[in-house]
């Protein structure tokens, strides 16, 4: 029987078709790329451009002053205090809320009852309005009528002006920051803990991991790696963005002792209308955030994703 020639499926598609395919690809991804640029990249680039100008809101024109704003920042005592305070705030609040949050998550997950209740309680600060809760803190920390000082008085401690003394104000804000972030960290860690297969704990027990610490080192901590990276990232950003409590409770005072980056940026931009200068502060803020992210992904990411 004579064989009919087979259709040539393997033949390359005609060039016209290939071209139209590429065009279609560009066309289809255009809306996403456009909105990505317009909504995310564009504003950031505009902000960086503005930071090289002396534009003030309401002023007629603007002048390109190059690195002038940044040079001024280096001399600005308020800004330098804010930068130092913000980094200190991150350095204190981030590790303490992560450490304490992990401990609480372990305790809650370790117990059998009331897990959902604890989760809800710890998450309360996250869903409550921080400015409103700040007034509660103001009362708690009030130098004369505040319960904190009254409690300390029982132990013979002299009253402390928590929010009014430059020695204590940043620590007080850190304590509020810990309270604010703890619930978030606890809930994230609890979610991470439930994802660890219980078989691994059984295997660890069979393998001779007797102490809770040994099981934590062998199973919990390594398997929480991805969760921890996420928690560190999120908490670092949340800490860097500290603003509400400062604006509501201290206004950066006394004597810049509680000044933080976003609050300075806000005052320069929306109180003094120095948009160019404010943009420079924001650029510094973004640089700090980006640097943190880079460190995290470079150092940690490689070591914690196993699957």
């Amino acid at each position: 029987m004579p064989e009919a020639p087979l259709p040539r499926f393997a033949a390359p598609p005609p060039a016209r078709f290939a071209l139209s395919e590429a065009a279609a690809a560009w066309l289809l991804s255009a809306p996403a790329m456009l909105s990505l640029f317009l909504l995310l990249l564009g504003p950031s680039l505009a902000l960086i451009a503005l930071s090289f100008t002396d534009w003030e809101l309401g002023a007629g024109g603007l002048t390109w002053i190059g690195l002038g704003n940044y040079a001024e920042l280096l001399e600005d005592r308020t800004f330098l205090a804010a930068l130092r305070n913000t980094l200190l705030y991150v350095a204190l609040v981030m590790p303490s809320s992560i450490g304490l949050g992990l401990l609480i998550a372990l305790l809650v997950e370790g117990g059998k009852r009331l897990r959902a209740t604890f989760r809800a309680i710890y998450f309360l600060p996250v869903v409550s309005l921080l400015v409103a809760m700040a007034t509660a803190w103001q009362y708690l920390l009030h130098p004369t009528i505040g319960p904190v000082n009254r409690l300390l008085a029982l132990f013979g401690v002299a009253p402390i002006n928590w929010l009014g003394s430059s020695d204590w104000v940043l620590l007080s804000l850190c304590a509020i920051g810990l309270w604010e972030n703890l619930g978030y960290v606890v809930v994230l860690f609890m979610a991470g803990l439930t994802a660890i297969p219980s078989e691994l704990y059984a295997a660890a027990e069979m393998d001779g991991a007797r102490s809770p610490w040994a099981r934590f080192r062998l199973v919990t901590w390594p398997l929480l790696g991805p969760t921890t990276l996420f928690v560190v990232t999120i908490t670092a950003i949340r800490c860097l963005r500290v603003f509400d409590t400062v604006a509501a409770l201290t206004d950066g005072g006394p004597n810049n002792a509680s000044e933080v980056l976003l609050h300075v940026m806000y005052k320069e931009g929306f109180t003094y209308f120095r948009i160019g200068y404010s943009a420079a502060i924001t650029a510094v803020f973004l640089a700090v955030v980006l640097a943190l992210m880079l460190i995290q992904t470079r150092i940690l990411d490689r070591r914690i994703h196993y699957a």
């Binding site: 078989e199 062998l218 914690i304 699957a307």
Partner: peptide, 15 residues
Amino acid sequence: DIAMVFQNYALYPHL
């Protein structure tokens, strides 16, 4: 002083 083989092997994924 016993050893066990688990159904899902229960190997430590990070090791």
